[in-house]
Amino acid sequence: MHIRLESLIHTYGDVHAVQNVSLDIPSNAIFGIIGRSGSGKSVLIRLISLLEKPDDGAVYYDDERVDDLPDDELILRRRRIGIVFQNINLFNSRTAAKNIAYPLEICGMPKDRIKARVAELLELVGLADRGNAQISTLSGGQKQRIAIARALANNPDILFCDEATSALDPQTSRSIFELICDIQKKMNLTVVLVTHKMAVVRDVCSYVAVIDSGKVVECGSVVGIFAHPKADITKDFIADLPARPDPKDTGRTENV
């Protein structure tokens, strides 16, 4: 699904969090949005993922305008997008399997079909044997895998990742991104990934938008931007990059 943003504006009191952002997010690819803390990238993803309404401007999914949907249609639309959060946000009162079942339950899917779909998703994220586990007994990486499975439960067209691995260690983080890349290909998803790490953009994304003070300062293919960065902030991000990980060390190191 292709996403188009048209001169989005959003303010909190006196803070111009998002200032006139227009973007084209291509279908079936991983699109990165990078910016420092306070650059407005998190607000931007809240607007694109329909968690908040912009003060002005429009959001289109394919050619359907979605930012001004009435409440009941908004709820139905939200059921067809997946979001993975930095803080994971699983339900502690539910087991891993029941967490994945939640988005299916709220759509009224029959119990036996939920069970089959949950088993499929647990398999997909490599945790087939942990369905009955309490959330508190899972590692950080396992929790994020369950959260990804939950986000994918309804076969969404779009997956939003808001700093999905910022709370995880580098190895676990890498295994989560491998999973996201894998799933993107399998499900032909449009993935929008917010991060403050250029390494994530380099390793995972095909396209990137660089955000600073609520504005898009640079946008294009990752290869092009790495070859010819124009904005100072992009140059800073690239200069601060850690060395590429040792190729011998790229395997999944997390024990899942």
Binding site: L50, I75, R79, I81, I83, N89, Y102, I106, R150
Partner: peptide, 19 residues
């Protein structure tokens, strides 16, 4: 944030309260 996640998944207010 957990409540917000439930809302982002398309829960109605009643579903958020009960579930």
């Amino acid at each position: 944030e957990v409540v917000q996640a439930a809302r982002a998944m398309g829960s109605t207010n009643m579903q958020i309260i009960i579930k």
